[in-house]
Nucleic acid binder design. Sequence first.
RNA 1: GGGCGAGUGGCGGAAUUGGUAUACGCGGCGGACUUAAAAUCCGCUGGCUGAAUAAGCCUUGUGGGUUCAAGUCCCACCUCGCCCACCA
Length: 963
Amino acid sequence: MNRYNPKEIEPKWQGIWDETGAYTADLRSDRPKYIAMSMFNYPSGAGIHIGHAMNYTISDVKARFKRQQGYESYHPIGWDAFGLPAENFAIKSGVSPQESMATIIPSYHKQYKAMGWSNDWEKEISTHLPEYYKWTQWIFWKMHEQGLAYQDSRMQWWCELDNSVLANEQVIDGKCWRHDGADDPLVEKREVKQWFFRITDYADELLDSIDALDWTESVKLAQKNWIGKSKGAEVDFALEGSEQKIAVFTTRPDTLYGATFMVLAPEHELVSSITTDEQRQEIEEYARVAQQKSELERQTSKEKTGVFTGAYALNPVNGAQVPIWIADYVLEGYGTGAIMAVPAHDERDNEFAHKYNLPIKQVVADYVIGDGNDAPRKDVPTRNSETADAIITDGKGKYLLQIEGDEIHFAGGGVDETDASPEDAVAREAREETGYDKVLSVKQAAPYSAYYGYRAIKKRNNRCWGAYYEVVVDPSSKVPSEVEDGMHEVAWFDKSEVASRITWEDHLRAWNHYIGGDIEMDVHEGLLVNSGEFDGQETSEVRENIVAMLAEQGKATEKVNYKMRDWSVSRQRYWGAPIPIINCEKCGAVRVPESDLPIILPELDDFQPSGDGRSALARATDWLKTTCPECGGEAERETDTLDTYICSSWYMYRYFDPRNTQAIFDSELVKKWEPIDFYNGADHATAHLLYARFIGHFFKGLGLVNEPEPFKQFLFNGKVTAADGTMFSKSKGNGVDPLEIIDQGYGADALRTYLMFAAPLDTWARWDPQGVPGTYRFLSRIWTLVHQYLAAEEKPVAEAAQKEILRATHQMIRKVSEDIEENHYNTAIAAAMTDVNELYKLKVDNLAKSDVWQEALSSLVACVAPFAPHIADELWLKLGHHNSVQRDSWPDWKQEYLTQDTMTIAVQVNGKLRGTIEVEVGSDESVVLAAAKADTKVATHLDGVNIVKSIYVPNKLVNFVVK
RNA sequence: GGGCGAGUGGCGGAAUUGGUAUACGCGGCGGACUUAAAAUCCGCUGGCUGAAUAAGCCUUGUGGGUUCAAGUCCCACCUCGCCCACCA
């Protein structure tokens, strides 16, 4: 018998698959359709790595599984060929990207085929070919036609040595990627004209349809966060001494009374007009520096900085004068680029206020945990009441506490209508409750807090809030109190004793604030205080009311904001699809006639950007000069190219009709195949997925597709790391080359099987050098088993053995079928391994040429075929099948073979396993219980005790509860 | 700072609705075959006490709780990972 030798059989089958077009999908087939794909690859000179091997095997297994099940299964192939790395290489080497791609892509063909991936090469696409990018341009064309593409300016990184725009990834440590020496200057930002797609028009649509997607949850969440919808209000603050207003966006209008200053983004349009002459120089300097701050600085240094403009605004709710500052923690691009700062309840504002000594005003009281904190009742009325608590001291380190039985606390009481202020109230309470008549001073000592109480006697909900005040009294002034004397026992304590004496939790908290000095706020929701007519109401209740109130005065409107920006789609780069626009001095930016598409990217010798901020295309004079389609006058082509994200946001549709020259694709065909059934990748790829969804929704609007969501299922799979858990990297030299593993003699099948077996698909797998040898051994065992069977004598197999063989086989079929369907590849492989182990035991006495072994081995081979397609085809053929295992070979499992005559029942005594018993399937509970009691091991534990209760879980377990 | 997720043998990892924890693989140990090795095949392999392949106890990050029964459910804590990050 020949040994399992992948080096022989794998190239052989790869050749056969190629010749027979085994994986060519018939897109017009009557069969049920299935399309599984991984995110397509960016072809770089480095070739495939272990991460690619992982990604593409995942979708390949799915595609093969469905193909074997009788689906018309399509596993497409394409290349994301445009992009910066190829252009950078071209700039350095002078080799054109077109040329590099012409050699790189074919080298990938070999590697993909060596991995045994079942790609349909007939329908291969690449984004850099005119036949493809004609339609990328068409998408821009269509967007423009629909009013969804527009031009605007945006700040861009600029290298003064290159005289060129830089992409974010070309900025390294604040310097240009080509000029990162010690003497080289930092990059700057310059205003550059950009094209945008109005993806924000689709924000709600894209957000609303996320929930229904069968995607990895974290990816769905990332989509939601990216869109970043938040509901709030736009509120106008009048500029003091002027007719002008400044609008702010806030999600917390309920905290308006706490707005003690205002902050504008340094780029805000009103900054220069409101700045006073004294402040002007400082403001301008700050704005200039902020603009040039690199991303790196912004991320590493979160320390708040800012400058006062000298101007004041008026808080619309109470007319309070608030200073206006500028600071770079407020972003120009979000909301109105201006905020009202509520330092008491917003951490960023708080930090800023502390740094610049701005007032902090508490307007939300936190609920304290205490005796009064009952649940509100709906059946009785609610009353709001303000209270004031007194931390009474002689001013010399002694504190007066009230003693009521076991409870010790500060004095305090309600703020009555007769009290002019809480301070008056607390002074009055101090006198009344303690008898010390001479109050020397009163000042707030701790933040406001709130509690909720139900008063049974008055049948009333009480919503209470109040602050704590330090009340200094003259200790020699005690007189008989007229009002409450005798009701309260009081005693002086030393400062060091107070904390250990107080029994009320909220009072202890106030004490800690008092002695800690600083009143820090980390409260976000609760009861409003210091908020005029809204005092005592819940923040969540007030949020809408306060906006409604201001709206009546024309000072506020409800407003929804999104973090998502419009999509900047133009790049000042050579290696991309040219934007199909002609710039005419007279007519402006004009679309090229649709019939002129594609605008071919001219081949150049020099790929260096032109030096005026435009791409190298600006030097391609013959190409550049043209006539205006509208007026016929002299004009120039747009030299910007399209963001490669556009290329990759629609490629899945092109897979269905890759050679169409008349239309982007045949809609009828796409409507038959949409959506993509299975999509996977090892990156969140939030932007890619969002843009693809956007294009899907856009196509739906154009009637090109029926289903706006392109991807039905998306699996965010894990990556492969080195054995020590660190990332593979070229610099560390710890990379694992998949082709090398294959060439070592283990073969693609063993590699594929290991990758799918090592861990669940959504978990990061560690590379184990012993792993592939392990799966090689497994495949080897199948190889041996089949060959031993083929060499065996023809004779009948004992009935009991037949039963066992069939049971093992059908159990395996069931598990593998279900697990692949649910993306649990690792346990599917484990089930096949278990089957092999069982068949090895059974073969010792029972191996024979027979129907039962034929069925067992054919099923086994078919079930491992998605993971190990080469060995499967080889063995399938040897088992006498005439078709390929790759199509229509998936076995069905039959329930009748899974049932057994006896079942194992676990027997517990008081929840502890004491033995197992074998009983006939379908035995009555009484029979099972009797058998359980009869078991010798169990019996010893039942000896001398009473069985209080017997629990029988059918077909599984018995538990005797004894005493 | 915010969000999400995870802690199970020496390692990667299994465990429907709560129902025999540690499937499967790796590694390790022992044996068979062999002049020998590799390969292959067979067996053992969570920890502790024990001479034991007797018996018992313990064990899913830690501590509580619910339950006849908890890796799984609830509460608190600890640790790790990932993503987003000044979005008002």
